[in-house]
Computed example of a mutant assay.
Amino acid sequence: MADSSTARLRSAGCFLGFALGGFFDGILLHQILQWHHLLSNVEAVDDMRLQILADGLFHALMYLIAAMALVQLWRARKAALQPGAGPALWGCACMGFGSWHIADGLLSHWLLGIHRIKVDSPNPLVWDLAWFAVFGLLPLAIGWRMARNHGGRGGEGGGGAAAAAVLSLAALLAGPLAALPAAGGSTQVAVLFAPGVGSGRAFDALSRVDARVLWADRSGGLWIVDMADPAIAWQLYRQGALLVGNSAVAAGCFLWIKAPADRRT
């Protein structure tokens, strides 16, 4: 395959892997496990609305990188049919995935200190180093070896089209997955009130729908409540709510927020 097509294919694989690494981090750590938000350790950001906004902007950046990589992959589609393209593409994707976690560890955890892997751990460095090794160094090493052994013009084997299809599907599904509500039929509902809605007015609005307050952030803008009938939570939009969990209007990281176990009232 032509050198330019080979380079484009490898670049697309690296950027797709990088974006998937970001989605993996955001979906697993920000939403499902809720071990940290993007700006968890930034003391000036004590308003949960800003934390949610930062997480949303982070996911938006991953969407942009994934979209650019998919365009690049489409332009290199003929190169994906050449011998050796499959292992090379998988290798580059692994390197991109590992590169995301290495960059996140070096910049976010240690240089900037905006968050750690598990912010409430008594030994956050242990978690940082374990994550750095397992999801950063290991995929990078595996990917580098695969791409090096099969990155030339002639390598054996194919599979480039299948690799491109699987990686593209993973990138296309990661975005919608990030916007799905948490499963399990929980009666917990997250309610984000508009700026200017005071705590008294918010509490009154919640009492109107028989919501029991579990937790509220310092700003009084974000509330986690328990409702016997979450289906009527949409009525809070009439009382100044911007977003309501379990509502079709809400999306993304917001729908995954739940009350911290040690802060329930």
Rank of each mutant, 00 (worst) to 15 (best):
L33K: 06
L33T: 10
L33D: 01
Q34E: 10
Q34W: 12
H36E: 03
H37Y: 11
H37L: 09
L38V: 07
L39S: 07
S40C: 02
S40Y: 14
N41K: 09
N41Y: 02
E43V: 08
A44N: 09
A44F: 11
A44E: 08
V45N: 02
V45P: 00
D46N: 15
D46L: 13
D47T: 05
M48I: 07
M48P: 00
M48G: 02
R49M: 07
L50Q: 12
Q51A: 12
Q51L: 13
Q51C: 14
Q51H: 12
I52A: 11
I52T: 07
L53C: 08
L53Q: 14
D55W: 00
G56D: 10
L57M: 11
H59T: 06
A60N: 03
A60L: 15
A60F: 15
L61M: 13
L61D: 02
L61W: 06
Y63W: 14
Y63C: 15
L64R: 01
L64S: 08
I65N: 01
I65A: 00
A67H: 04
M68V: 12
A69H: 01
L70W: 04
V71R: 15
Q72K: 15
Q72M: 12
Q72P: 06
L73W: 02
L73S: 04
L73Y: 05
L73F: 05
L73E: 03
W74A: 13
W74E: 11
W74R: 14
R75A: 10
R75I: 03
A76N: 10
A76T: 11
R77P: 06
K78C: 08
K78M: 07
K78V: 13
A79K: 05
